[in-house]
Design a protein around this nucleic acid. Structure first.
Lengths: 348, 348
DNA sequence: CTTAGCACTCAACGGGCGAGACTGCTAACA
DNA sequence: TGTTAGCAGTCTCGCCCGTTGAGTGCTAAG
């Protein structure tokens, strides 16, 4: 809902739209309030500055622009940015394939590596914080292995269809031979192969409830083992973030400090970002969240440009996080191309 | 060498030392230049401000303090901090055991988890960037496992003595049954168990050179597999860093910007920090690096307080990275206690 | 509806001034 | 010889204030 403000916005005439677009572009480019005079000259309309002033006055009433102080030029508000990016999104051409991007992503074979490369690529292209996210819940089990370590511990290795591997050391009391463990692992693999890890978790719980006494004790214990591993698997969902150094460019005004802190906290606790992202997961395709449309008050001077990508089963999110005053056109192009490349990489 | 400036420093009299110490303490506490008047009152010496001025003039000549401008109080230089922390280190009491810290570290069983907790604990105690490092080269092999994934790929799992686990998916052309792979893994485990991974790497290379033709082809290929895995093992050395949000407290003066950028880059590419740390690995015990004693020019306004910790075989480094003007006494206490706790956790 | 013109507003800049904080220096003193 | 009181000097900081210039809103004419 936040990224669809048209509910109350009256239609803007073509000329007004052109002026607003020119204003936003110019402000994004140079970061300084745009004057009516400049717009009269470079706004794409053959009108005088006085006329532009009338237009701007109305735009200000309607909340699209504001002036930092009297006798300053206009600056776009979040609503103004919204209008602008809606125009951009409307007119964007379908992302052309970028073989060099795809090649970069393919450098790493595993899912985490691809995600890492994707986020780096986004940072490289936009000079902002880039991220790439993939839900691990969709991973499908290929096989599970138990490796006895010492008396009290077993290493559980879970291999997913996509080649992703997770492991966990789990306490395991009681005797068990290597062969028994292998057998149990084989049984579990046969039983649950090709199911998603979340499904398996649910089924394991059921099975542990229902048939607790039916099988031998060893089997019950391995079930518990598998359950415990799946429940606490590290990297349940992967988020890769890059471009931390670029946030130094956000500026160092005192009011930017809470933003800085919030951003750094997000980089450190990636779960936060993960949570933020999943909120936008259902909107398929390109999503742009601008400033105050955000949830967190500390992130109000930032914008989020992201898109989902999929090859059918697997879905992921790639995007960037940057200042509200960012080059949205470039951001959209970058996000499009990386998303496109990632979809292709995952598809193969 | 950088942290031992006494080469040219003349001995300072007891009174001078006391005044310098009071000055540094006061400046650390309040961040403002300290005046002779204040020192006369609170410096621990019953002298007039005029006398203090004489002392300060000499300290300034010798480079221990400086004034931001004429008619301002004195501020410690890096050399002044050095003198101060040397005094602190001299008089520090052997770190008392802190059971609650140890308990926190024990929450996670694996080495990475302990390191993560250690860095968090350091951040918690000091409000600065905390880090914990452990060299993986010292890991001793407990066992190696090969898990066939599909036609062309094998999952190699390496388990170290300490329970640390690393895995890697490696291309593996040609046919091999599960049993053959298990046999090969058992052989390698028997052969190289309890050796350090670096040793094993070297030996594998030798063996591959020397006996290339002696064994059957499958064995040669598994050797190559093991070699490749060990060579590119992710997490060769672990560094955990926490406290990114605290760097927002460094201030936002324009001259702090390159520092901010360098710090963020370090958080992102932990290898950099890793390299920085290994330079101090040989100095056992507490090491404090202050400002310009650093290698990188962008880190000159920062200080590093770190200590090695060991239980004999394993060694690690824990420490913090903060502004030159930090509470060194608190930093030392924190680093001591965490190092102590980590040594104990690893010892058990 | 557009435009030229005009009066108005306000941030930014810079100089000047007074207050205040400390210092360095000097001369007297133990 | 080391310490101290006193004093003059220096520099920052905050303040006021006038000037400048950019850019606006308004009005009246086209």
């Amino acid at each position: 809902m936040p990224h669809s403000p048209r509910y109350a916005a009256p239609e803007l005439s073509d000329r007004v739209l052109r002026l607003l677009g020119a204003l936003v572009r110019e402000y994004i480019e140079h970061g300084e309030p745009v004057s009516s005079q400049w717009l009269a000259g470079h706004g794409g309309c053959a009108v005088s500055s006085a006329t532009v002033r009338n237009v701007l006055a109305r735009l200000e009433e309607q909340g699209y622009v504001k002036q930092p102080h009297t006798s300053a030029g206009r600056v776009p508000t979040d609503l103004g940015y919204r209008q602008y990016v809606d125009g951009l999104v409307q007119g964007r051409r379908p992302s052309r394939s970028a073989p060099e991007v795809e090649a970069r992503l393919r450098q790493g074979g595993t899912v985490p590596e691809v995600l890492a490369h994707a986020s780096h690529e986004l940072t490289r292209q936009t000079q902002h914080v880039g991220f790439a996210w993939a839900p691990a819940a969709e991973r499908l089990l290929q096989r599970i292995e138990f490796v006895p370590l010492d008396a009290g511990r077993v290493l559980v290795v879970v291999v997913a269809m996509n080649g992703e591997v997770a492991h966990k050391v789990v306490p395991f009391a009681g005797p068990a031979t290597r062969e028994q463990l292998i057998e149990a692992a084989n049984y579990l693999t046969a039983q649950y192969g090709a199911l998603s890890l979340t499904d398996i978790r649910a089924r394991l719980l059921e099975e542990m409830q229902a048939e607790r006494a039916l099988y031998d004790e060893l089997f019950a214990r391995t079930l518990a083992l598998a359950q415990e591993t799946l429940a606490s698997l590290p990297g349940e969902s992967h988020v890769f973030v890059s471009g931390a150094p670029t946030i130094a460019d956000l500026g160092l005004s005192p009011e930017a400090l809470p933003t800085l802190r919030a951003l750094l906290a997000m980089l450190e606790e990636k779960d936060r970002l993960s949570r933020l992202l999943t909120a936008y997961l259902e909107d398929s395709g390109l999503t742009i969240v601008i400033g105050t449309e955000h949830l967190s008050p500390d992130l109000q001077s930032l914008s989020l440009v992201l898109t989902t990508c999929s090859d059918g089963a697997r879905i992921g999110i790639v995007g960037i996080l940057g200042p509200t005053r960012m080059r949205y056109s470039r951001a959209i192009a970058a996000v499009d191309s990386v998303s496109h490349a990632m979809s292709r990489v995952f598809a193969s």
